[in-house]
Amino acid sequence: MKPMFRRIWGLMYRHLALYRRSWPRLVELSYWPILQMCIWGFTARFLAARMGSPGLMAGATLLGGVLLWEVTLRSQMGMSLSFLEEIWSRNLGHIFVSPLRPFEMVAALISMSIIRMLLGVMPAILLAWALYAFNLFTVGPVLILFFVNLMIMGWAVALGVVSLVLRHGAGAEPLAWGVLFGLAPFSAVFYPVSVLPSFIQPFSYALPTTHVFEGMRAALLQGVIRWDHLAAAFGLNLIWLACAALLFTRQFHAARVSGALISIGE
């Protein structure tokens, strides 16, 4: 194995070993997505029972929105929390004096985020199919592209959170849990962008997630793949990720200048 991949694996192994020894951490991964699925699944069933076919459609987009939003949220939290684990265990000093490059650390965190997201969201997807006969995979192979875009958006936000924690220490930790929820109302998760006030819509369309959820509704309700939305999502994700990478690079250097890497747990 090349040294670079070995270093990335080393940091991944550290987190995988942690999960092997901590069942509460494993349960936590899927607890919230499953809970969300239960709440919104029964809501969707209620709507379908009361409203008939329109309610069924609304329920389907609701469940699709819940599941796909969890992909973004779990990707973001999977990356942010893996980084915070190093702070909580006071291990960051050892990590950063090893030959591990910052981009290798990010690669390891992204890999852990994928694993955590799959472990968290897959049980909820299976539950939606078992309890509510909602099969997200009927969207077709384009679902993979939706997943990829939502994950990239999650990583971009997580990189921003990690950057702020590097710069401002533990005081920025709560962002790891809350920051993405601030984008949810503008991401058109449960409703189309057209219901938002017109002055908010440009901001909404600047979010890659918005284009994924618009695309999801088109696929679920009309059976069409909106390539324009997918292209916009990929393009915007490139910009978001580039901005986040720039922010991370600058904040990492700033942390090395200010000494924040030494006292980051405080």
Binding site: G10, S89, N91, H94
Partner: peptide, 24 residues
Amino acid sequence: SPYVALPARLTVRENMRVYGHLYD
């Protein structure tokens, strides 16, 4: 340094493996 810890939940062997990989 006694002021920088190793991950507490990992065993000594697992910690050694982590750093073995990081240092190739």
